[in-house]
């Protein structure tokens, strides 16, 4: 069989005889799906930025009420993390690939997005974990070191809190690195292979 004959058979296939689309139902599903997508995005943004905003309000209130300057450090750290996420999200939204773009442009945009996600998660210690941990622990250590007459008194509470924070941050860091290794790196490799096929 020649290729032209194969093409003819291919083009003669009539899917409509085996399958039909209920356009009304599909449209309903599309709209439902779109609304679910919007809800998911809203709650994701709310979780990431909303939690930071709530923490800012709580620590600000606590700091003003008790004249405790250490609360303002946590406020500053939360503000930094929230602003960083918000600005990053807005900057990345502009670079979101459009499905009507040519395949190559779409794959390039997806690659840039995945690479950025990898960068974010690899550096999560510097922009997320360290500022908040430092804001919580530094005042505690400062107070503990200046508490006793010799200036070297360390309370068990401070040591326990430090140990807890180190374990918690290590766990969060490992979770993020695992997400990079198992989810994002293979995806980036797949996109790179596709891009190589288009170069």
């Amino acid at each position: 069989m020649s290729f032209e004959e194969l093409q003819k058979s291919w083009q003669a296939q009539a899917p409509a005889r085996k399958i039909s689309i209920d356009a009304d139902l599909l449209l309903k599903e599309v709209r439902r799906n779109q609304s679910q997508f919007r809800t998911t995005i809203f709650w994701r943004d709310f979780r990431e930025v909303g939690v930071a905003a709530c923490m800012i309000i709580c620590f600000l209130y606590h700091g003003v009420r008790h004249h405790d300057w250490s609360n303002f450090l946590v406020v500053a750290a939360c503000a930094w993390v929230g602003a960083f996420m918000l600005i990053d999200r807005l900057a990345q939204r502009k670079k979101t690939p459009l499905n009507q773009d040519p395949l190559k442009a779409c794959i390039e945009a997806s690659h840039a997005q995945v690479s950025h996600q990898i960068w974010l998660l690899r550096n999560v210690f510097w922009w997320y974990l360290l500022p908040i941990a430092a804001a919580i622990l530094l005042p505690m250590w400062w107070t503990a070191l200046h508490k006793g007459p010799t200036g070297t008194h360390l309370s068990a509470f401070v040591l326990r809190t430090t140990f807890f924070m180190v374990c918690l941050n290590w766990g969060i860091y490992r979770l993020n690195q695992n997400a990079v290794k198992k989810g994002l790196e293979p995806r980036r490799k797949e996109l790179e292979t596709m891009l190589a096929g288009l170069q």
Partner: peptide, 17 residues
């Protein structure tokens, strides 16, 4: 994936080809 209503109808009739 969330369950959705079936908007595709598969017909049992044999293919014409």
């Amino acid at each position: 994936r969330l369950k959705h209503e079936a908007f595709l109808k598969f017909h049992d009739e044999p293919a014409h080809e």
